[in-house]
Every structure is written in C-alpha cells, then in structure tokens.
Nucleic acid binder design. Structure first.
Lengths: 232, 232
DNA sequence: GAGTGGTCTAGACCACTCA
DNA sequence: GAGTGGTCTAGACCACTCC
C-alpha cells in the first residue's frame, strides 16, 4: 500500500511474523515503542499505530508502565453481522411477517433500569412484537427504548415498521453489547412461539449506546430450532 | 477521559450525535477533515482518527476525493472472542478443573462425518470431557478429531491436558465455523451438568479446518446460567 | 488537474501504574 | 518518582478518484 517511508502495515506485519514464528514468544516482553521506532526507522506514532492494531487483534497485551507482551493464548476472534430480522428471514427465502403486540410508555422493572444504567425517572417506551417466517413464529422481541435518547420514538407507532428497522433508520449507535444464552420459555413466550412452557429457547439480548447514552435494550427469543452460525 | 485539548473521543461522539439527531442526514456529505478540524479546534489527525472510528463502526462511508457520507444502511458487525475454556473460567476468578470422561478411536456417526465432509474410512478420535468452575460443571465437551490431519492426537492421552489446549498448541487452523443454539439436554448431558433431562442448555459447536483439511468438530454444552457476552 | 482522505514525522505533554 | 503507553499538534507528502 502507498509507499510511505515505512508504513504501519509493514511494521505491523513484521511484528506479527515475529510473534507467529516465536521470535517473540508468548508472554515475553517486547521492546518499547521508542526502541521499535528506532529499529524500524519510523516515528513513534507509526509504531504505536501498528501496535494498537496488533493489540486489537489480540496478539499482544499492552499496559502502561508494564510495557507490551505477546499474548499467552492468541485470542481468536470471530465476527458476525447483525442483520435486521427481516433480512435474516428473507435471506433464507422465507416470507416475512411482523406483528405488533403492544407498545406503551411504561416504568421499567428494576432489572431493565439497572442494565441500562438509568435513573428511576427516565421515561422508557416498551414495545413487544413478533416476527414470523413463512407464517411460523421466528422471533419474539421485547424492547425498551430510552425516550431521553430517542424522543422521536414517542411519535412512532411501530404498527407497520418494526422497532428494529425504525431504530436503524432513526437512532444510530456507537457501542453495543450482545448476550446470548439458553433459557426456559415462560408461559407467554412459549405460547407466542408455539412452544410449551419450559421449552428451551435461544435468547439474544442487545444493548446499544450512542457514546455514553443508552439507546435501547432488546431481548430476542427464538425457538430451539434456531441456529446462529458464523464463519472464521 | 484524559483531559487532552480536544480528544478524538469527544469529536467522535459529537459527530455521532449529529448523525443520530439527523443534523447530518443519511446519505449526506459531511464537511471535510480540514473544515472539521477548524470547527473543533483540533488537528486534522485528531479529526481523522475520530472519523476512522465512525467508519469502522459503520456510521459513515469514506472515499477519497468523494468525501465522507453518512451511511444509508449502517452495516453492523460484532466480534466475539473464542477463549480457551480454562481462561474463560479463570478469568472469572473461579478455580478450573478438568475431567476426562472417555477417549477412543471410533467410527463416527453419519452426522459427524457429514459435518466434517469426510469419507467413511477416515479414522477419528472421540474425546468426551468435563470442565468445572469452582467444582461446579461448567461445560461438557464432546469432540471428534481428524487423525488424518492430526496424527499426533493418537499419542496424546488428554488425561491432564484438555483436547482444547492440546490442539491449540499442536494443531493450528485457518478456518472455523461456529454455531450457537439452545437445546434440551439429553439424559447424559443433563446428569453430567447436574440438570434434569430436558433442561435448556446452551450449545456451541465449532468446526475448524487447516486450509481444506477438517481438523476437529467440537460440541460444547453449557448449563442455562451460561452467558456469552460480546461488546461492540 | 484538483480535491479529499490516508499516512508519516517530530516533538510534546499527560495518565497510568509499578516500585 | 519514573518509565511506558496514549494522545495531540502542526506540517507535509502522497494516492486515489472524479471531473
């Protein structure tokens, strides 16, 4: 790429090579930024950028004062895309349907407030809905939206457009946390998904923030036939 | 964070806010780096870093000469790390224990052969084991190893070292596929994990390849208290 | 050809953390 | 207190792409 004097990519790749070939061994301390800059004949900022990328990739661990070490167990990471439910369903060649179950401004239960890190007085919109694939229940969605962050959600009726799609278009986020787990369906979830109470369900939760500001918490419940697959 | 003159985080968050509040609308061209640097009273490099983060997060799309636009359909992707079970457990501050349940060369069931894309005559090693956190069952592991790809696995006894760790050190891979799902525990899984038959369990499966060569297929079963969490 | 983003340099200050 | 990484500045050159 661009024949810069010494590109951060070249430096990054060279350091990755040293790690993979065990010239720098797991757990070992590698030279400081200044020393590396001298060695590679580059500015410290350039070396810093290369090191930051390696740290993000999990090959090294960096701590102030303590220096930079080769990670003991290179952390493999996988990526998965977060599609809209609708795209997920249509992508499988199934017909998508959406049904709004309820929508109202509501005081959230303590656990929701806590997970969003909000005070007692913050107004939230509570939306429950169902997504179907070829007329079969595919996902039950239970969502709380922070009206302080997204006041426009008060005007949205979510009758035709799912909160999922509405938020994508109206409330970008910068941070997100995902949680996946198995659970036993409660009575309502079970009946909505066409399962018996206590059936295993696959639960995905997502919290999103814009900077520090919590946007929404959503709990997505799938029947046990659901598979989340990702590659690499 | 660190009271730098004007941190790239502050700039990034402010720009994210403008996007979320539609001051900068989807598809619209936003000001160039130089103009933004002037506006925020920061160096162009600082603005550049903020913009690069937003681009990585999918909020904006950047092209030379064409400038920077607010993304029409933010494509989000999340990453999650695949730690060793042991690290996962120790990382939570719990004591790790490992118990080998069985280990033998075996003809795999049809479904295993199919998932690995192997013929009938390929020899496989079948290993079953249990990982405990603070003496409580944490994960039941059921693994098949392709002995054509990893012949050394014949000599490994897996009594002290789990196949997971042994493979990390002895069988690099280049490709992996992950599947996550909820299921009902069968009788054996249930009793090993201290659950009743039919209890919901969280099942993660992983297949790895070295190039085209299948290495291993592992099924990891967790009690329903298990949470897989990832951020960003 | 010209405008915009991509990257590098050289120097500086600061925050965090360990001793 | 001191060493290391984190970040910012100001200036510069370059590559890519659109016209």
């Amino acid at each position: 790429m661009t024949g810069a004097r010494t590109s951060f990519r070249a430096i990054r790749d060279e350091m990755a090579r040293r790690i993979s070939e065990r010239q720098w061994r797991p757990g070992a301390l590698i030279p400081g930024e200044e020393a590396l800059a001298r060695e590679f004949g580059a500015a410290r900022a350039t070396v810093n950028r290369a090191l930051q990328e390696l740290a993000r990739a999990g090959l090294i661990e960096r701590r102030r004062r303590a220096g930079t070490r080769v990670a003991l167990h290179p952390v493999r990471e996988a990526r998965f895309v977060i599609p809209l439910v609708r795209q997920e369903i249509e992508g499988r060649g199934a017909a998508y349907q959406y049904r709004l179950l309820s929508r109202r401004e509501e005081r959230p239960p303590e656990i929701v407030r806590a997970r969003l890190g909000l005070g007692e007085s913050v107004p939230l919109m509570h939306v429950r809905c169902l997504h179907l694939a070829d007329r079969a229940p595919y996902q039950y969605e239970d969502r709380w939206i922070n009206l302080d962050a997204v006041p426009a959600a008060r005007e949205a009726d979510f009758a035709a457009t799912s909160p999922n799609e509405w938020l994508v278009a109206n409330a970008p986020f910068t941070e997100a946390e995902f949680t996946f787990a198995a659970a036993a369906a409660d009575g309502e979830e079970g009946s909505l998904l066409g399962l018996g109470e206590g059936s295993p369900v696959f639960v995905a939760e997502r919290i999103t923030w814009l900077g520090d500001l919590p946007i929404t918490l959503v709990r997505m419940v799938h029947p046990p036939s659901h598979r989340m697959v990702t590659r690499l």
